[in-house]
């Protein structure tokens, strides 16, 4: 696939189900109760249990890897800022635009959002394609 600056990354849409934070907690080892205990999350002032920021970053990595048909060797660098809080049972949309393409090195700007809330911003991915 030849990519040029300004090209769009295929959009990734995922709706994490109610128990996704529990599965991600098990997969990642991060059992912080704000992610898996709704009552605890509310008691510390959150709207409900929230998604792991690194899960959202994982979706950004997945969306970028799609440019290389999912080849895990393609992603060389990914740098993100985590902002709004993600919640289960609402669709996440990951979009991206190619910032530069120089030979096999492609740099992509990616955003992950849930409704009006930006979860991941200033995400810059570098891929070797």
């Amino acid at each position: 696939m030849t990519l040029n600056a300004g090209d769009q990354v295929p959009e990734l849409r995922v709706t994490p189900d109610k128990y996704l934070p529990h599965r991600y907690a098990g997969a990642s080892g991060d059992f912080n109760p704000i992610h898996i205990d709704d009552e605890f999350a509310k008691a510390v002032g959150l709207p409900r249990n929230i998604l792991h920021g690194l899960y959202s970053m994982g979706l950004v990595a997945k969306a970028n890897a799609a440019l290389a048909d999912g080849d895990p060797r393609a992603l060389k660098r990914l740098s993100v800022q985590m902002r709004g809080m993600g919640v289960p049972e609402q669709e996440i949309v990951v979009t991206g635009t190619v910032k530069s393409a120089d030979g096999g090195r492609v740099v992509v700007d990616t955003v992950a959002a849930q409704g009006e809330t930006t979860l991941i911003k200033n995400a810059e991915a570098e891929l070797a394609l």
Binding site: R23, S28, G58, D69, G70, D71, P72
Partner: peptide
């Protein structure tokens, strides 16, 4: 199994995982 668990949580389907 841990790789499989992680890939499943993220919905990553490439069989190399």
């Amino acid at each position: 199994e841990k790789i499989k668990e992680y890939a499943n949580a993220l919905g990553i389907e490439n069989p190399v995982h």
